[in-house]
C-alpha cells in the first residue's frame, strides 16, 4: 500500500457500509406545445438574449440584416456544416465570412481578436431554463460559441424539449457523450462587483438565437 490511490480507496472501503437510499420520485416540469415555445423565449429573453423566429429559406438574409445593423465587419462560420454551406452559397453580405477551417493553433489571432461574430447551430433547446444545447464538433468547434463578441445560434423549433432531464434520457446521452457538450443560456455575464449584472465579461456579449420554425413560414 504505497501509493495514495491504494491508501485512499482502502480507507473508504474500510468505512462502515451504509444502505444505498432509494431515489424519491421527482420529475422536471413539462409544458404544452404553445407554452413550451413561449417559456423558451421568455426565459432566454430574461437572460438578455435576442430571439428571432426565422424560416429555412429566409434565415441567411435575416442574419445578414441583424448583424449588419450592429456594424459587424466579419463573422466566423463553419464551412463544412449544413448551415455554413447554406450561408456561404452566393454570399453577398455587407461583412466578411471567415471560415474556421484550421486548428486553433494556426488561427488563434483571428479567433481571439479578429472576428466580431460567429454562427453555430444548436443540437436542441430547453424550454424550462431557456437553454441551447451545443455539441461542438470537428466541423463546428468549441471556441466558436465562446470567443467572438456576438454568438448567433441557429436552432430548429422541433428540437425544443421541456427539460434537460427529458433530453438526456430521450437521446440516451450516457451512451455517447461527445468531447464537449455545452448548455448556453444567455450571453456571458457576471455579478461579482456589488451584485450588479454586467454582460460579456469573457464570453460573448450578445447571444442571438435564430429559432427555425417547423413548417416553412407556417
Amino acid at each position: 500500500m504505497t501509493d495514495p490511490r491504494e491508501r485512499i480507496l482502502a480507507r473508504l472501503k474500510a468505512a462502515p457500509k451504509r444502505p444505498i437510499p432509494e431515489c424519491p420520485a421527482w420529475s422536471a416540469p413539462t409544458y404544452g406545445a404553445d407554452e413550451r415555445k413561449a417559456k423558451f423565449r421568455a426565459m432566454l429573453e430574461a437572460s438578455h438574449a435576442d430571439v428571432h423566429e426565422v424560416t429555412a429559406a429566409d434565415w441567411p438574409d435575416r442574419l445578414k440584416a441583424i448583424l449588419a445593423a450592429k456594424g459587424v465587419r466579419s463573422m466566423l462560420y463553419a464551412p463544412d456544416s449544413a448551415a455554413g454551406r447554406q450561408l456561404a452559397a452566393g454570399w453577398t453580405g455587407d461583412f466578411a465570412l471567415v471560415p474556421y477551417d484550421h486548428p486553433v493553433e494556426d488561427m488563434k489571432e483571428i479567433l481571439v481578436t479578429g472576428v466580431d461574430a460567429a454562427l453555430t447551430t444548436a443540437e436542441a433547446a430547453i424550454a424550462q431554463t431557456g437553454s441551447l444545447v451545443l455539441w461542438p464538433s470537428a466541423d463546428e468547434p468549441r471556441l466558436m460559441s465562446l470567443l467572438p463578441p456576438i454568438h448567433v445560434a441557429l436552432v430548429a423549433e422541433e428540437t425544443l424539449a421541456d427539460s434537460l432531464a427529458e433530453i438526456l434520457t430521450a437521446q440516451n446521452w450516457a451512451a455517447s457523450m461527445p468531447t464537449n457538450a455545452v448548455l448556453i443560456s444567455g450571453p456571458s455575464k457576471t455579478a461579482d462587483i456589488e451584485q450588479t449584472l454586467a454582460y460579456g465579461v469573457h464570453g460573448p456579449k450578445e447571444l442571438i438565437v435564430l429559432l427555425l420554425n417547423a413548417g416553412d413560414g407556417r
Binding site: 468531447t179 464537449n180 455545452v182 448548455l183
Partner: peptide
C-alpha cells in the same frame, strides 16, 4: 434558474477536432 454555461467535458481533443 441556470448558469449561463454548463460545460460537460468527456475527453481531450480527438483527431480531426480543431
Amino acid at each position: 434558474p441556470i448558469t449561463t454555461y454548463v460545460n460537460m467535458i468527456t475527453s481531450p481533443r480527438k483527431a480531426g477536432e480543431k
